[in-house]
Nucleic acid binder design. Sequence first.
RNA 1: GCGCCUGUAGCUCAGUGGAUGAGAGCACCGGACUUCGGAUCCGGGUGUCGGGGGUUCGAAUCCCUCCAGGCGCGCCA
Length: 558
Amino acid sequence: MIIEDRLRDLLRQAYAAMLTSPEQPDVVAGEIGIETPNNPQHGDFASNIALQVGRELGANPREIAQKLVAGLPDDPVIERAEVAGPGFINFHLSPHWLHDALAECLAQGERYGRSDFGAGEKVQVEFVSANPVGPIHIGNARGGPFGDVLANLLEAVGCEVQREYYLNDAPTNTQLQIFGASVQARYRELLGEAVDFPEEGYHGDYVVELAQAIVAEYGEEYRDVPADTDGALVFFELVKDKMVEQLRSDCSALGIEFDEWFCETDLHEQGLVRRQVDELRESGAAYEKDDATWLRTGDFGDEEDRVIVRRDGAPTYIASDIAYAANKFYTRGFDRVIYVWGPDHFGYVPRMKAALGAMGIDVGRAEFIIYQTVRFLEGGEPLRLSKRRGDIVTIREIIDDIGRDAVRFFFLMRSVDAHLDFDLDLARQQSAENPVYYVQYAHTRLCGILREAEQADYLGKEEVDISLLTHPDELTLLRKLADYPAEVLHAAQQRAPHRLPHFALELAQTVHQFYTNCRVLDSGNPETSRARLKLVEGTRIVLRNILGLMGIDAPEKM
RNA sequence: GCGCCUGUAGCUCAGUGGAUGAGAGCACCGGACUUCGGAUCCGGGUGUCGGGGGUUCGAAUCCCUCCAGGCGCGCCA
């Protein structure tokens, strides 16, 4: 049990004992606020419970706090509890709880920080899902590390997680048609024809390279393919496998491996899109107007109704997404589905929620996380990125430049709600002075101590007394280790992977301070050395665990 | 026009109801080690928390309003 819950439990008991009449409000233990005070003089933990219930009870918060403190059950972990300020209860704990936390960390090893809060909930995280029309680039990469680490966090708190990439490879996808037409145009150019490049076409050099590959393999075989939609799709089919392989390998380079690559085409080929549309018509959720089929999303919170089958008979993107959602929730039975989308999908959320509502799916089981724009700066100037214009900066280039760990760290550090300025000059310049190295170096240093200790056989067979750890820097470090499990839980609950790099930096800082001020290996003080080695071991576990959650290496040597 | 995100130190960003301390990294200045890796540590901050109003015992945090930047609003995805 983490310490906060232990304190909550004590407070709940004290509160129950304090109540004199049944109509007074009950307090749920989970809702009792426990926090770490900014000012260390205010104790190790503080609760504002008395201030919270004071209003409801119409009583003086300080008096309530006094009664609660008086009614606290005995617990050896509490050195003293006192009322402060307008009615805070400050807990000053015995350092034993920190030593207990270290013992628990050592016992649990790589499991330390994990919990069963998620209770086996079956969760799908769908992320990246970029169209197969080009490589992963700086604009659409952000969802990658975010989704991956969110999935790690949910796993860590006991959910059963699936990572999914939704591949929009259906022939009805207009983007694919334009892309295929672009390849075709380049192909014909290579064969010496004068062609009008599609107005909205993809201008990247990689499109030319794809066309060159077709020439190399098939020569002029595809010269007479008509320059229409069907023709464009012929060319898309020629390059599709390459595109998917590119996406897969780009994700892999980012350290992301999906459990499932789900093809939109399958939904169409299995007739699921048609079937869902028919079902919606039968239930009255969809209707015909202007030769198109409309979904009554307006009745479910969207601004207006939306077309799901176009006048030409082709289903729109949302029709596929309806079939896809049915597959997620009904066929595969996920309890919860998290969509991680780019900022361009923002306007799509209300209609997707409305569509779920029209399908009878509890909207509360779907979460939509929109990450904000990434601006790419070069020479201090923002660059507009467009796959179509071809001025893309691929994630490959960035990885080759500053390394995978740094790329992940940079993306993860910011909240998804915040716009992200990716300044490559700065990233390059900082790559030697990068925050990620600060964290990794802390791990490396600890490994160095452990290597040295092993050679000198410091631990021996003696019983180790970790209660010897009382130096301020030791206590600070112990506190950080003790805080780790709650940090993981909060990061998962708040869907806030960016908390991890921040916590890791704080932890690394306490490690470096400890390292500087507390000599571990000292043959003159074998008992202290042994206790400190236990602390080093525990700290190394936590560093490795948190870096693992972030998908970043924890090197033993650098 | 409507909707959403953002606005915190020179720069990039955490903190999103708590306390007479609003923090970190970078940058800049000055210090520290004969032993575990100096990719380290220590010291140096007069910030209108975008402006204004409100709610509250308490607001960077919640509400209203205004300003600024970004993004979205298709029978594209």
